[in-house]
Amino acid sequence: MYRYRSYVWLFAAVMAMQILLLDNLSLSMWLRPMIFPAVILLLPIEWRTVWVLLAAAATGWILDGVTGCQGLYTASLLPLAMVRPAIIRLTANRGVEQSDQTELLPSLSRKQLLAYISVSVVLHHALFFALESMSATLLWYTVAKIAAGSLLSILLSWLVASYFMSKISAGQ
């Protein structure tokens, strides 16, 4: 039996941090940290993709509503939900069909967890900022935003994931 209560807390904490803290920070025009993809990345791996897609749509819909971005968050989060099994297969070097979250995610080494989060966050940020600018003339500006934003987001997401994994492991 999975700890669904932990996931509810994870969702609430990450969303609150994103909306109340990170969205209101003005660090630099290049730095826009986003940790909400962690909500989707840390969902149980054995969850069927259809449920992960619906979770991503709901998360994106809430953020779109709160920030007034009208579809941008949802459109960038859905592809991440779709390719999540492929990313974890790639980074963990094993199949996910028969695995479950209690076995797989906490069993990842630090390096593997970092690789899983990094690839996912960069993919998400690339989609997000490309959709936001939608301009070839702003290409280098967009690439710089993706690079700088991803670095900070990876660090924050990794901290959240490590803390969450340690709690899940301790509760098993």
Partner: peptide
């Protein structure tokens, strides 16, 4: 389902 949700989100954003 993915295509449906993605198109709806992109349409809303567009």
């Amino acid at each position: 389902l993915f295509l449906l949700l993605e198109i709806a989100a992109l349409n809303r954003y567009a």
